[in-house]
Design a protein around this nucleic acid. Structure first.
Lengths: 111, 111
DNA sequence: CAAGATTGTTAGCCATGGCTTACCGTAAGC
DNA sequence: GCTTACGGTAAGCCATGGCTAACAATCTTG
């Protein structure tokens, strides 16, 4: 149950922004920071969190360090969500029917 | 782009626990709190956040209040994730090939 | 080898948020 | 109508975490 790391990682707006930019293609830390409203160390810290959550991978490239999307963390969240998707739809359907039944009943009561 | 609410809501472990319990079936606030290590007002506050994120729905039931899973917020997160799923897999595949190519090249350099 | 570039790390600051206690409103039952 | 049960809200406390500035480490280049 390590998905809490992935959820916590994506709960921060700046981190989601970093993640979305990496989805457009691999990038180095400095290049990422240049397009964001926060400092480079901040981006570096965000990348560390994303990495520990299995959402990105990094690879050395000379003095630079290239980060890239990792499907692993994404898959964990997807799997967690899918556990509730069907039951959520069923619950919603049942609720609609229950609500309509109550509505019809109140109509009958009025007659 | 209201998915930030859903992500922030599910980033808290207690809130995910509440959500999972509701996935097992609709429940009132007190019943939920009785099975959790936090106080009832805490659960009430969590439910408020989940509700604003479109993850649960509430309906009055006498003096009680029954909460239930709502597929809307879940769908938002799923849609957001699906935007990156394919590109993440492609990036992963490309990385594997790049990595293997570099490995082969270093082997050649050694001969 | 020296200088510049790129990145990770630490210390410290401050806002956010989760939790509890106390209180208030509302609905059910005697 | 009064009491009891149920749930939302406000105030306050404290831990978490995101940010910046300063520093250290590593790599490239002349």
């Amino acid at each position: 149950m390590a998905n809490n790391l992935a959820f916590a990682a994506l709960s921060d707006p700046t981190r989601r922004e970093v993640f979305e930019r990496l989805a457009a293609g691999p990038s180095a830390v400095g290049d990422l920071a240049r397009g964001l409203p926060v400092s480079r160390p901040a981006v570096s810290q965000h990348l560390k969190v994303l990495k520990e959550a299995g959402l990105v991978t990094d690879r050395p490239d000379g003095a630079r360090r290239v980060y890239q999307i990792d499907p692993q963390g994404l898959g964990q969240i997807r799997a967690w969500l899918d556990r509730f998707w069907d039951v959520a739809l069923d619950a919603f359907k049942a609720e609609v029917e229950r609500s309509e039944a109550a509505s019809i009943k109140s109509d009958e009561d009025r007659t």
